[in-house]
Design a binder for these strands. Structure first.
Length: 281
DNA sequence: AGGATAGCCTGCGGGC
DNA sequence: TGCCCGCAGGCTATCC
């Protein structure tokens, strides 16, 4: 799914619809998409899923989203490959299939329903009694957020690594938020071959990479993210960044910079597309 | 340590 | 029209 730009755009479209609303009712339709905090298993499931609570803030780190209530409780959402959070009116309408959890909300502008859909079920919901426990249990395992990572941090994270740079970028413990699309896009903009060993990149190249990661993520957020098959924001709208991809999904087509034919190969079990002229080893 | 591999799921498009 | 195949934005466990 959704990488950082899609989750951030989702967060921004959800924010005005959710913040200030109270959760009237929760229906967890598939229990196995949810995991509670170990210590609070005796708590009411729906209460853990924010029933009766007012939503005050939406947080994001990497590809994960946190929905915080005034009670302090927080719902962590990971969209996996095909997850969606949609805000609809009273009924799910066309979004009936694969809805695993729904929240009936009462806000200043009337009632709405928040849906968690996830056909492939690689995503999930996690609940915690506080933002601090969520961070301790889940977000602590992630590297610095890719949108705000400093070049010094990036340098530190990649120092001495013998893995291909693309494999390192996909590792959420190194930096959080980059997936297959934006790894290819950022490496193209930085003119770095994806198989280059991470630890062998010069300081100058790493500085350029740090900047291109931020540039491409911000550009993608501005265009509502990339919709390949199923990504949609809170309103069900697709993102338009895919039409601006330089390399992802363009194997065999001409490089937008030099005109050479783009190539692809498998790296870290993922299709990797690059320009053989712009990104020499 | 970090690589390769398989596995978790459904849906889609292409080829026949 | 329909069947089979491969592929897909993520991530984990296991083995080497």
């Amino acid at each position: 799914m959704p990488e950082l730009p899609e989750v951030e755009h989702l967060r921004r479209t959800l924010e005005p619809l959710l913040v200030g609303s109270r959760v009237l009712e929760v229906s967890l339709l598939r229990r196995d998409v949810w995991q509670g905090e170990r210590e609070s298993n005796e708590d009411d499931v729906e209460e853990q899923l924010l029933r009766g609570q007012r939503i005050v803030r939406l947080l994001r780190h990497g590809k994960q989203l946190g929905i915080e209530a005034a009670s302090g409780r927080v719902l962590c959402v990971h969209l996996g490959m095909s997850g969606q959070l949609l805000v609809v009116g009273e009924s799910p309408g066309t979004y009936r299939s694969h809805v695993h959890c729904s929240w009936r909300l009462k806000g200043v502008n009337g009632s709405r329903t928040l849906l968690f859909r996830d056909p492939r079920r690689f995503g999930g919901l996690w609940t915690f009694t506080s933002v601090a426990t969520m961070q301790e249990a889940r977000w602590r395992l992630l590297g610095p957020d890719a949108l705000t990572v400093s070049v010094e941090d990036l340098r530190d994270q990649l120092k001495g690594s013998t893995r291909p740079i693309k494999a390192a970028l996909l590792d959420q413990r190194i930096i959080a938020g980059v997936g297959n699309i934006y790894a290819d896009e950022a490496l193209f903009l930085a003119r770095i071959h994806p198989a280059t060993l991470a630890g062998s990149l010069s300081r100058k190249k790493l500085d350029v990479l740090g900047r291109t990661i931020e540039v491409v993520l911000r550009e993608a957020i501005d265009h509502g993210g990339s919709t390949i098959a199923s990504y949609a924001d809170a309103n069900g709208d697709a993102g338009t960044f895919a039409e601006r991809h330089r390399v992802y999904g363009r194997s065999g087509l001409a490089c937008r910079v030099c005109g050479a034919g783009l190539r692809s190969f498998q790296l870290a079990q993922r299709t990797t597309t690059y320009c053989p002229k712009c990104q020499r080893r």
